[in-house]
Design a protein around this nucleic acid. Structure first.
Lengths: 211, 211
DNA sequence: AAATAATTGTTATTACAATAACATTGTTTT
DNA sequence: AAAACAATGTTATTGTAATAACAATTATTT
């Protein structure tokens, strides 16, 4: 079993490696990757060890091979479909982010309650009324939902999503969702992130000059 | 020194407590807070211990007092100003999130390079051309920047921000930024988050039925 | 061909975070 | 008034992640 933090880094490694591949580069060293992502070379080597890939000493890691190994871990062999719930600014922002296909994840549909935002294509994604949630999720066999709606209706929608067969949720509403334990939730809370930054800024300002 | 993870939870505690306060409730138990946020009561008590607040046995914690103690930790005594760089969908989404003032953080300005998006008020925030970065940041004494621009210009902007006196960055561009070590960076990478969800969903589907 | 240098792979250590255990204390009940 | 209970505060333990150390190996240099 690969640790969660390693999975996160693998995602970042792959993106960096893909850039390098575009530049026709063939090999890279652990310390290069580490420097680029502000990590230690040991961490990079350890992660790569964990996924069972081995480089060649003195030469480093084959960029192409490493991408393949990471992709096998992250993507598996089959594609996975995702839907977005809520086509406000945040929903649109995320749609744009993923309009360039990376990896094996595809956003296949979006949902909203606003009649002005449904039954048309927004940021390249077909948008439906939430009433069609169950139908479309089943048709597309989507397994992931990205929640970018207002907190008010979030738990209700989540229940529907779980019923429709969703197995993973990326939650941008700042509320804590209740789901069965076989559903994986990744919470992202902007308010908390900003308050955290504010705290550490305040701390560093207060401690200025002191050692 | 309060651990990073505790700071994150304090932010969430406060929001939950504020809700309770609105409902005129006066006291709550560690296990209530824990249940609401999917934590253990021990963790909650430990966090509260770390910030030096004590409840009363058998009665629990005073909601009002606890909010005050948390606020003192998170906010300190002075307000802190923030700016947003990039008024695309993500920038607007964040502006809306923070249009309701919570805590002591205020978003005082936004910047963009698009002439259609500058010199007017967007989502309640005055928007300027990036050429005015240094000027406005100094005028407003902003210490935090929220980066919601495209990756291309991010490092260049970051250098300008640091020069202008920004001490904390909430980074939504998926690139790794170089900054002096007295600048605190919180990275949020949507692509990584989604790939992580996809990985754990895939794992759980693959392991269905096995124990 | 031998020595050196540079890099990987792995193990050991340290640090950090979460969980569990338990002692303490105040309230309620009998 | 005593006993039982239910909550807190704190210490101890466990688990997870990051760092460091080092052995093994391969290329390069002399």
């Amino acid at each position: 079993m690969i640790p969660e933090k390693t999975i996160e880094r693998l995602s970042k490694y792959r993106r960096y490696l893909l850039e390098k591949l575009e530049k026709q580069e063939e090999y890279l060293y652990s310390h290069e990757l580490a420097a680029a992502l502000h990590l230690t070379p040991e961490q990079v080597r350890r992660d790569i060890m964990l996924i069972g890939y081995t480089g060649t000493q003195r030469k480093g890691y084959s960029i192409k091979e490493l991408i393949d190994v990471i992709s096998k871990i992250l993507d598996g062999d089959k594609k996975i479909n995702a839907v977005i719930i809520g086509m406000g600014h945040l929903g649109k922002a995320i749609s744009n982010y993923f309009s360039i296909k990376r990896s094996n994840i595809e956003i296949v549909a979006a949902f909203d309650i606003d009649s002005n935002k449904v039954d048309r294509i927004i940021s390249g994604i077909k948008s439906y009324h939430v009433d069609n949630l169950d139908l479309i999720i089943n048709e597309t066999d989507a397994k992931i939902a990205i929640l970018t709606l207002s907190p008010a209706g979030a738990q209700d929608i989540t229940d529907q999503l779980v019923y429709a067969g969703i197995k993973g949720i990326l939650n941008f509403t700042s509320i804590t969702l209740r789901v069965p334990e076989d559903v994986y939730i990744e919470n992202y809370d902007m308010i908390t992130s900003l308050e955290k930054v504010a705290y550490f800024v305040k701390e560093s300002i207060d401690n200025e000059g002191t050692l």
